[in-house]
Design a protein around this nucleic acid. Sequence first.
DNA 1: GTATTTTTGCAAATTACTTGCAAAAACATT
DNA 2: AATGTTTTTGCAAGTAATTTGCAAAAATAC
Lengths: 148, 148
Amino acid sequence: MSLLNPKKEQEREALCATLLKEKGLSVTAPRKLILGLLLKEHGPFSAEEIQKKLPKNSCDQATIYRCLNQFVETQLVNTSFLEKDMAHFEYNDPHHHHHHIICKICKKIESFHECLMEKIETNLLRKGYKDIQHRLEFFAVCETCAKG
Amino acid sequence: MSLLNPKKEQEREALCATLLKEKGLSVTAPRKLILGLLLKEHGPFSAEEIQKKLPKNSCDQATIYRCLNQFVETQLVNTSFLEKDMAHFEYNDPHHHHHHIICKICKKIESFHECLMEKIETNLLRKGYKDIQHRLEFFAVCETCAKG
DNA sequence: GTATTTTTGCAAATTACTTGCAAAAACATT
DNA sequence: AATGTTTTTGCAAGTAATTTGCAAAAATAC
């Protein structure tokens, strides 16, 4: 069931419901809308961008944040802090592991699939990027907490 | 004034001044204190932690943020968003490139020097970490902005 | 269909971080 | 070393993303 981008609205709706249930989340209108959007468009998007993309007044912003946090906790969605005071969110498709590059000036975000840093940097240089920096961070449960 | 290592203390002060001048920043008391701390202790630290570590009332928090931002702009310091609503700062020692792992529960932060992801993950698993995720992000100036 | 649990919307609160401004410190020049 | 200019600082108030308390509404369980 690895439909990255089901073409039909209906398929996406069904996938949303399945994914939510798999994670033990009840299937509500806002959750379907938000997750549906993230399945349909690639992002990463800020909470504000997500709200603007949804039908007007279909979701309160508090609801959007609550849903996104649940999606992150259940690993349906990944967060990144490409801009320093705003999180971005993106559907976590395990078959399309990738990373981002953001322009320090115009903030344009692009994705790439390479995963060895020297190769990545070489490719980015070839594409014309200058002044490249990267940040790699791991998140896990430490041994102490895993036992407790 | 460290009683333990006056020689090193002096060296650090001199290094601070040199680093600041190299980056075109004037040498002020707050900048010496903050950069000095980051040279002495490894971090990464939040702005609040930095303030607490400095002599009481030696720096306003606005000054701390302003200095840290200048240090980041001049690449004297690196930022990370290990916790979602708070930046952490660390001296950017080009000879000690490394990354971090934060426990999802207790928030303890550790550093490591490996830089190939499979190797890193294997090592972390060996150390007892579970449920490992990572985030790798690049920051650069894109071709368009480099021309403009 | 009804009861119970969960989620939502709204408005207010929180908090990391930023900013305007006057005083103080740093720097350049003599 | 004193002077004038520029930069930086401290303070207090402001900003903006995100969170939270609570009552009403929707989802799930029975």
